[in-house]
Design a binder for these strands. Structure first.
Lengths: 173, 173, 173, 173
DNA sequence: GATGAATGAGCATTCATTCAT
DNA sequence: CATGAATGAATGCTCATTCAT
């Protein structure tokens, strides 16, 4: 992958994340990335192809996270890690997740495949801890994390730390 | 407001909700509503004006909900009502909220003014019930409700009822 | 049909005829016809749709010619009329036929439906005149007329009249 | 000329012939010929240069045909040879002539230089056979052959042989 | 109130072509 | 000889919007 290709991907992800896929034209991406508009299409075939490439890259990063979850077997630690997830993102991750969350609202794109394996881990963790409805408990926690991610992505709230501790506390962590 | 105006608003809300504001052209709205494209601009000045009119109408409906909260003074009842909110929406409300939630991700549009008064009610309710951090507790519950609303709007899950009961149970309701 | 629509059709036909469908951009047509480019698409949906509208119009004109052939029952007169056809075209017809002939070479577009009924008339005429192979004779004459039309459309030769008489003479007319 | 150059020429001729010069992009030629797009421009300077090279090659082949006509001095044989020309083409010739015929309709490209010397031969042949208007007769025959070539190139008709004999018969051959 | 003709800017995409390697 | 990254202009087409009727 060329330097320019990376530049295009990074700039496009940022713009898509901030303003939405439809609201950003390929011409703007080209200008922001200081390349010709044609180059985008040479490398990524279409605007959609560009988006796909971005998602592909993010997907791979996400899978890294999952591996670390997989290696953990203390149930408390698994729950703790899931709760902490949305609270530490670097700039790159921030853009990726913002993009992913905004895409969910576009027609047909909703895709739960990312959260499905996490739900599995959580369910087992809650079962080990003898929760009454481990699956429902896992779902509820994931939904809460979804809400937290949304808040973090949209409001960048100042009391993130207190919020995190409050949630950890709810699960006796 | 004429019959045609209502028709335009309703159709536009549905399309915006399902596919996103940017992804729906005024021409498609006109065709779907069986009116001329010109009429949309006669009545609503611009595409943005059309969106504003939709949001205005929804806002008024939301304020109705708030009034009923205001008249309630049992803290448990207030919390119960907030938790139940996302679980019973009719078709019209469904479109409105889906639109509102999708708009949050567009540049600059984020607007917490709707949830702010609810947060106030919840904080007071939790305080009356002697929760340790009533404000944080209110924020957390609202975030959870946000996550639940997202799930309901995007996945229309089948176990809505169990989920609702599970959450109510967490707050001893 | 608006004045502007007619203008677009006429200008487009001329440009397509002179330079070929692919070689003429919709932007050039718009400029030549003094209308906005958008208008072309409002009225004719696509560049292809514009071409179709042109062909449609020409087709109707051609069918007029056929009716006059149909009413003729002297075989000699039928043959004479067919031979004379390519020699008297006004400017409008000239453009139409040039366009039609140039389109034949584009992939897949070849369409003999126009000449088929004429071939039928000619075959019967030659049969009445006791030609040995009336169908083959009709085909040959049509092929010759095709060649003549090509010459007339491309070279606008000066000796058209002599050529016409020479051909008429070959068929004892 | 390298193998790759020949490949490019051959593929390009076929595509130009089938779909028209304008309708075929250099990128498609490159892909079809399994070479890089850059190579086409290295060898042929421009898309037009590529076309010129193709025509050049064809021209040389045509001149071969003329030499054999030149060596024939029986007038009947000359006429026979001209009539037979369009009826026996191999694949390569077929593409070349289809391309040449399609190019005639493009602006300005009409070029009679190829047929001019043949017209000369025919005129002399008809004169030797004491036809009344040898030049007009030559022109008419060439026009008929043009029509026949068009038919053969576009329709690949099944009765080519009967058609050829019918024409030969018209000239007592 | 309602239509539909008309616009001009912008869109994603493709084009022929150049050039460093 | 050959590639493939890179360009900038042009393409067909859609957009939100205006306006005369």
């Amino acid at each position: 992958m060329t330097e320019k290709q990376k530049e295009i991907l990074s700039i496009a992800m940022e713009l898509f994340a901030k303003e939405g896929f439809d609201a950003v034209s390929t011409s703007r991406i080209a200008k922001s990335a200081n390349v010709s508009e044609g180059l985008i299409f040479k490398h990524f075939k279409s605007k959609q192809g560009l988006l796909d490439a971005i998602l592909q890259l993010g997907q791979e990063a996400v899978e890294g996270l999952l591996t670390s979850l997989k290696e953990e077997d203390s149930p408390k630690e698994i729950i703790r890690q899931v709760i902490q997830m949305p609270f530490d993102m670097d700039e790159e991750q921030y853009h990726f997740w913002r993009l992913l969350y905004s895409l969910k609202w576009q027609a047909d794109v909703y895709d739960e495949s990312i959260s499905e394996p996490i739900k599995e881990f959580l369910t087992q963790a809650f079962r080990k801890l003898n929760y009454g409805h481990p699956k429902l408990e896992a779902e509820t926690l994931l939904i809460l994390m979804d809400g937290i991610a949304t808040t973090v992505l949209l409001k960048k709230p100042k009391n993130q730390n207190r919020l995190m501790k409050h949630v950890l506390n709810k699960y006796n962590l």
